[in-house]
């Protein structure tokens, strides 16, 4: 099964420029998924770099790479949840994630995500991210829950 961008928009509440997946190339719902994120120089994270900074400053932010992987995990999980359980996915914990090398504009990042467990409404995922044959990141464990919008607003 493959999911195009329109289907990702239907599944995830994230929107431009925070919807950080382009396509899901393969998914076994509730088990594993491979998702693609293309880094481009016209993403807003590149808008504020001062003129004349060297090439290494164009590394894709680690925060957005982790978010992109997390959205892959969210898609995998949401596909296996019964419909009608509305709410926002909240990233609640991460453990042992290693960033091995940076990504740059033009790179195509492939996230290989496994859904390890779903316990009491909390999902645990792990996996890795690749550019070609190079592993760029490892994710030991990422934990997320889905919370209704009004519950999040009340917790603040």
């Amino acid at each position: 099964m493959r999911l195009e961008h329109a289907e990702l928009r239907a599944l995830l509440p994230h929107r431009y420029p925070m919807l950080l997946l382009d396509r899901v190339e393969a998914v076994e719902p509730g088990v594993s998924l491979e998702a693609v994120k293309t880094v481009t120089g016209c993403e807003p994270c590149y808008r504020g770099i001062a003129e004349g900074e060297p090439a290494d400053r164009y590394a894709y932010p680690a925060s957005l790479l982790i978010e992109s992987f997390g959205q892959g995990a969210a898609v995998l999980w949401l596909l296996s949840r019964r419909p009608g359980t509305a709410g926002l996915p909240m990233f609640t914990a991460a453990r042992e994630c290693v960033l091995l090398r940076p990504a740059y504009p033009g790179d195509v990042i492939r996230h290989r995500v496994r859904l390890d467990q779903v316990v009491d409404g909390a999902a645990f995922a792990s996996g890795s991210s690749w550019i070609g044959d190079d592993k760029v990141a490892e994710f030991g464990s990422m934990m997320a829950v889905v919370r209704p919008v009004d519950a999040i607003a009340r917790a603040s």
Binding site: A93, D116, Q117, V119, D120, A122, M143, V145
Partner: peptide, 13 residues
Amino acid sequence: SLRAIEILARIEK
């Protein structure tokens, strides 16, 4: 409560 869930998840695994 999320830590309790995490402990449970690790034990199950």
